[in-house]
Amino acid sequence: MTLLSARGLSLRFGAIPALVDVDVDLWQGEVLAIVGESGSGKTTLLNVLSGRVTPDAGHVFYRDPHGLEHDVHAMPSPALRTLHRSDWGFVHQDPRQNLRMNVSAGGNVGERLMARGARHYGNIRAEAIDWLTQVEIDASRVDDLPRTFSGGMLQRLQIARTLVTHPRLVFMDEPTGGLDVSVQARLLDLIRTLVARLGIAAVLVTHDIAVARLLAHRIAVMQRGRIVETGLTDQVLDDPQHAYTQLLVSSVLQA
């Protein structure tokens, strides 16, 4: 059964079609990459799927752990907020959008647990430290403020904050964008390992085809608001069918 499914999503920004009749299905534990160049509608699609932006037409359905299906855009906003705090996670390209910069690293991770109802300080702190270690941040930094962290560390802290509640579904917007290549490789391996181990489903927006190949089971290629091709990641990248995908794949520099 699908975890998330979208039907007929359309959205215009004035004269610009940002989404045109987009369907998406995501299964439990599946990582779907949305690729395409800037302005193709990738981030808009992510925002609509996660209920942050309302489409002009179409529906997004989320199936909760009890098997009940929810129309994401028809949910009352407190219910949607609860979903974002518990079942869902969102990893932004800029970790500052998600982190509280004047709260300690441990506090940033613990806050998500508290929002879900955890109250025992010792347990929260222990779990925060455990997660900092999992994302390779030294436990001695638990009381430091995020502003003393490097870009790569901030991104890892954001991932710890997002995954600490064991979400079933994570939305990621260019999670490795803006990082040094060496930091990127480590972060990608971290995301890949954690997502596989926790069995998390993810929708990942990236303009970097190599990132999609590494992390995603399935890929959807967007051009001018439409999904022009979708399928198994290695199949779409090694045997692209659509003219735009062929252009995208053939334009990648070989390192």
């Binding site: 399928g231 198994l232 290695d234 199949q235 090694d238 045997d239 069918q241």
Partner: peptide, 9 residues
């Protein structure tokens, strides 16, 4: 061989 693996469509 790649078709057998589903790598080529």
């Amino acid at each position: 061989m790649r078709s057998l693996y589903g790598n080529y469509r």
